[in-house]
Amino acid sequence: MHDDTSLPLFPLRTVLVPGAALGLRVFEPRYLDLVRECGRRGSGFGICLILDGDESGAPATPAGVGTEARIEDFDTGPDGLLTLRVRGARRFHVRRTRVRDSGLIIADVDWCAADPVIDLQPEHALLGVVLRKILEHIDGADQAFPEPHFDDAAWVGWRLAELLPLEQPHRQQLLQLDDPDERLETLLRLVDVVDDD
């Protein structure tokens, strides 16, 4: 699927999954430029897990699969820094990157296909139960997740990937899987690991 698109990247030490919200503090000139550009164009930017390097300073090496971030809200924090609230949208594969003079990484990306709508299978029913329990313990979950889809394999998988205390490389592994059932199988194995810790 070749949809030739350029996307500015914001590499982080965290993985953004589709549908998840994330708060960001923006202070580096290259990312302030990115936010202005996205605002002007009404477009999103890409968030990729950092494989090598740091969030600030020299351009980091981003993972090859990331998630488009759409800006939902912005404000100025008490420290005067710009704060953003973004939400994960489409997943993408990074084909090539180049670095602007400012240090901003621009990626040529191919969009991943949207998740197929698949019913939650009986062998994954436990994960639906786990997700319900997690949401019962989150204040304001009914506002954060106003339309739960407990019978949708993709939705259950992404919400668990967002909410479980997973290591970032495990979250990245889930992000890279295209099949919702395979994602849930992987989550079942990871939940075992989380339980054993």
Rank of each mutant, 00 (worst) to 15 (best):
H124G: 09
R100E: 15
D195L: 10
L51K: 15
D75W: 01
G128W: 03
A154M: 07
D101F: 03
I47S: 13
L12I: 06
P116G: 10
I138H: 08
F145T: 02
E136M: 09
A63N: 11
L120K: 00
D110A: 15
L7V: 15
R95M: 03
D79S: 03
L84Q: 09
R95D: 12
V99R: 10
D79H: 01
D52V: 04
A153R: 01
G80P: 02
V65P: 04
R95L: 13
S102L: 09
Q168G: 05
Q143E: 11
A89D: 13
G77W: 01
G64F: 12
L175C: 08
V156D: 00
A20L: 01
I50D: 07
L12C: 05
H124Y: 09
D101I: 08
L187D: 04
D192K: 12
D52Y: 04
T61A: 13
L49P: 12
R100K: 10
G23W: 06
R40V: 12
V86E: 03
L22A: 15
Q143Y: 08
P29L: 01
E68C: 11
R95Y: 02
L22E: 14
P11Y: 11
G44R: 07
L163T: 00
L22S: 10
L175H: 07
P11M: 12
R25G: 02
R30D: 01
P18N: 04
G88F: 05
F27G: 11
R171Q: 14
L12G: 03
A21V: 14
L32M: 14
Q121Y: 05
C48G: 11
I118Y: 06
D119V: 06
F92M: 13
D108S: 10
G53S: 03
I134S: 02
V129Y: 10
F74G: 00
L177D: 13
A58M: 12
D195S: 12
G157Q: 02
W158V: 04
G19P: 06
D196Y: 04
P11S: 10
K133W: 03
A153E: 02
D33V: 01
G77V: 00
I138G: 03
G66T: 07
Q121P: 04
Q168I: 13
E123D: 15
E185G: 07
I106G: 00
H170Q: 09
R100C: 09
D73W: 12
R159T: 06
P180R: 01
C48W: 13
L131E: 01
L163Y: 01
L51A: 09
V194K: 06
I105D: 01
